[in-house]
Amino acid sequence: MSKHFEDARYYLGRAADHAKEGVKEELEPVEARFRELVGREKEPEPSRLDRLEADLKELSERAEGEAKEAVQNARSRLQEYRSGRDEE
């Protein structure tokens, strides 16, 4: 593909992106008015802090579950060991 076609394709892509953003920007007030009339509000996107807090909570719960599982495994192995020694 010649350099001219590559350049044209690149600039067409940028033009499409800019057109999409422009249409989105122009329609935001219309969307807001429509949502106001209908009674549906746009759900706010979670902030970066909210996402991090959710991730930390998930990691904490997972770690707690893994720790409980490890304790249960250790207890069962200890019980098996003790019952094996008692039989001898």
Rank of each mutant, 00 (worst) to 15 (best):
D55H: 09
E61T: 07
V23A: 10
E61S: 10
E69R: 07
E31F: 05
F34W: 08
V38K: 04
E88T: 00
S83I: 07
L12H: 11
R75M: 13
A8I: 11
E45R: 12
G13S: 01
P44F: 05
S83C: 03
R9V: 11
Y10M: 11
S60M: 10
A74W: 05
E80K: 02
E36G: 09
S47P: 09
L56V: 08
E26N: 13
L12V: 04
E25V: 13
K3M: 13
H18G: 12
L37N: 13
G84R: 02
S76L: 05
A8P: 08
E21M: 13
P46I: 08
R75F: 13
L12T: 06
E45S: 10
Q72K: 13
L27S: 05
Y81P: 15
S60H: 11
A74P: 15
A63P: 00
R62S: 07
R40I: 12
A19Q: 12
P46Q: 02
K24S: 09
L27I: 03
R51C: 04
N73L: 13
R75C: 14
S83V: 06
A8S: 12
Y11L: 05
A70P: 06
E69C: 03
E88C: 00
Q79L: 07
M1P: 13
R85T: 00
K3F: 09
R75N: 13
P29Y: 02
